[in-house]
Design a protein around this nucleic acid. Sequence first.
DNA 1: TTGTATGCGTTATCAG
DNA 2: CTGATAACGCATACAA
Lengths: 343, 343
Amino acid sequence: MTTIKDIAKEAGVSVTTVSRALNGYYDVNENTRKKIQQIAAELNYSPNSVARSLVTSKTKTIGLLVSELSRSALKDSFMVEIMGGLNAYAGEAGYDLILFSTDSAKQRLKSYSQLCRERQVEGAIMLGMKKDDPYLTEVIESNIPCVLIDIEMSGENVGYVTTDNEFGAQTAVKHLINLGHRNIAMVNGHDQALVSQHRLKGYKKELQEAGITFRQHWVVDGQFQEETAEKEAEKLLQEYPEISALFCASDLMALGAMRSAKKLGRNIPESLSIAGFDDIVLASYAHPPLTTVAQDKYKMGYEAGKLLLHILNGDPTKRVTILDNHLVIRNTTTANNQKVPFN
Amino acid sequence: MTTIKDIAKEAGVSVTTVSRALNGYYDVNENTRKKIQQIAAELNYSPNSVARSLVTSKTKTIGLLVSELSRSALKDSFMVEIMGGLNAYAGEAGYDLILFSTDSAKQRLKSYSQLCRERQVEGAIMLGMKKDDPYLTEVIESNIPCVLIDIEMSGENVGYVTTDNEFGAQTAVKHLINLGHRNIAMVNGHDQALVSQHRLKGYKKELQEAGITFRQHWVVDGQFQEETAEKEAEKLLQEYPEISALFCASDLMALGAMRSAKKLGRNIPESLSIAGFDDIVLASYAHPPLTTVAQDKYKMGYEAGKLLLHILNGDPTKRVTILDNHLVIRNTTTANNQKVPFN
DNA sequence: TTGTATGCGTTATCAG
DNA sequence: CTGATAACGCATACAA
């Protein structure tokens, strides 16, 4: 590894000059700069960012904290796409991403905030955490600049990015209502997810606007899991066969619900309409292809990076980014032709 | 940020003692150690890995070099699963992952090896590169310890992990042959992929063993892309309707082929059997669910990490890891009932 | 068992 | 325009 010292010796100048020449300072003679640059190139020099970080106390590093990069939970392309967007923005801003995932040996040994401090990350993005995740409060309390995905917490050094979940839910439910459905049940995620609450709210609101009475027992929790959703949907559909449409708070759960419908002999969409949320890759490949509320996950990651840099740059104005979404109508929803009477 | 200096002052000892106490050296009095540990805890101390790295010249960092984390290519869960496995092993070994992806502003400005040198990564894992990718040769020549996924290159500091592609292809083709198929075509990836060559070899070998003559024009390249595969398969099936089975070198291409088959009115599997390779998430959700050669992508990442650490530890013996795979029979393959005569 | 001194590669301060 | 010199936080050879 060649250092600026080597270059200095070779060029017959001091390390100071080398440093300044290479960093584009203006107070250095153009000829010496040229010479130094040339020698640097010849010696295949790369600056040692570790040493630089030590003195500048800037690592140009963002920590990406994900709750599980483990075997499960990979079905939804969610995480990857967000990572893609984040990585793109980070790259543009001259930052690199360092990955912290919970599912390793260090899991209980070192906390996230410890990891962040050790690695001296300038800020963090948190992904896939539940509201009650101990790591979440820990990082927030640790005062590390931080952007959360889909968790509404903000403050001095904390911001979040999410989509307009209430609106998204409304568009989906409105779509079902417009198709003549009135017996619309919902498969939600769980209480610990903010998005669940908002999507539920949108569902209620839209029902209300259409003059349809909300029924608490027509809302079940699928834990954002395919299997759980399948079971819950099955119970629900068995007990209330008059349900003609299902709004699911995630695509994965919608896939589970579709499976339960098939098991019960309900054809989709003729005998049961189903709408999801997210538009994961699987949605368009499902059979039939799933009608769903599409959110731009890549952009979510990109905007998260942008927001984090706002915070890092001390801009006090912006802490929240709400992205929009839109309904993608595919083949799991159709006009209601239920024989049973309305409520 | 509290440093060992703060602790030293507080404990009334020298920084040396603090350093050794915290790093578990034996030549320090148990009482002083206790005291120091306690103070460290009180002050919420975290060692500064940047400073440590500078002096030890070990960063405990692995660079994960992926060719594209961009919007496309996210359909196959491949990358994520590999990352999951790698991350798990890295965590166990006390390493963190730093992400380098090509699709950013720095794309042409900084080469991968520059990035690696700057960040002082101890080693790198390369993922999703083509054989002729300039970055590939660059990193290898740069002498950074490196493990490649699915690219057969090895040497002093370079190793690779892949699956037994020839064997996998053979099991898939054998399965088709056992079902009575003889007119079996292949949708391959492209020449720049090692796995393509091996899978082709397995395909040929198995045909030969069954006494079926190999036909070069029954092998088309789908570029590992769904759309290209769809087009190529369509042309192939139109020109040679006697083809009763298709072996595809990736699941994504198999999905493309399935689409072309449907377009041509060929029911799957009754009128056309299709087998894929990889067993990505989409495979089991396809309609009908795809028969495919399953490889353990999580393990691939895990083993890649393991192999890299072998190299880093100077173990000269191990440079190659070949994982096994197995055929998962789903519903896209069935007994041949083609009316047209054999070759 | 503990402390002193030195250096890792770089940037920053200040004097020339 | 250029160069000594100190400092970042830590680990380590050596001395005590």
